[in-house]
Amino acid sequence: MSEGTKEPDGGEEKVVLKTHDGQEFTVDMATANQSGTLKNLLSEVGSSSNNPQVIPLPSSITSRVLGKVVEYCQRHAAGGGRRGGMQALEQFDEELVELDKDMLLDVTYAAAFLDVPRLLDLTSQAVADAIKNMSVEEVRHYFGVVSDFTEEEEKVIRSECPWAFE
C-alpha cells in the first residue's frame, strides 16, 4: 500500500507527508508549495533531500484523501505547460471532483486544512452543485447532520422562508 510514496531522486528538496494511518507521501517542493499551509510551514523549518522534513497530518486526512490532494498538487505544480496545456488541466480538474459524497467532503476538508485554494474552490463547488435543489432531509443525509431543532422550532424556521418549500 505504498503506491503514493515516491523515492527521493537527485538532490532536489523533498518533504514527507505522513498520514495518521501511517502512510508516507514524499513530494517535491513545487508540489508542497501548492499548499499554503505547507508552504508557510516549510519556509520556517526548511527541508532537504538528505533529511526531508516529515509533516504529520490529522486523522481526518486519510491516505486515500491525501492521495487525491497530492495528485492535484503534482499536476498543478507542473501547470499548463505540461503536454495537453490548460485544456487538459481543466479536464483533469473536472474529473478529479467526480467522487463519492464522503470522499468529496473529505477532500474539501483537506483542501481547506492544507490551504489549496483552487482545489477548495473545485470541491466546494461540486458540493454546492450536489445539494442544490435537495430537500431538507436530503441535505441532512448528505452532510450526516441530525436536526437539533424541536418540532416547534423547525416549524418557525420553515415559516421564515415559506418560498423555499412551495
Binding site: 454546492a128 445539494i131 442544490k132 435543489n133 435537495m134 430537500s135 431538507v136 441535505v139 441532512r140 452532510f143 447532520v145 441530525v146 436536526s147 437539533d148 431543532f149 423547525e154 424556521i157 420553515r158 421564515e160 422562508c161 418560498w163 423555499a164 418549500f165
Partner: peptide, 14 residues
C-alpha cells in the same frame, strides 16, 4: 449554492 430556495431549505437543516 447561491440559489435562494436551496439556501432556504439549508436553513432548516440544523
Amino acid at each position: 449554492v447561491a440559489d435562494v430556495r436551496s439556501l432556504g431549505r439549508c436553513s432548516a437543516v440544523s
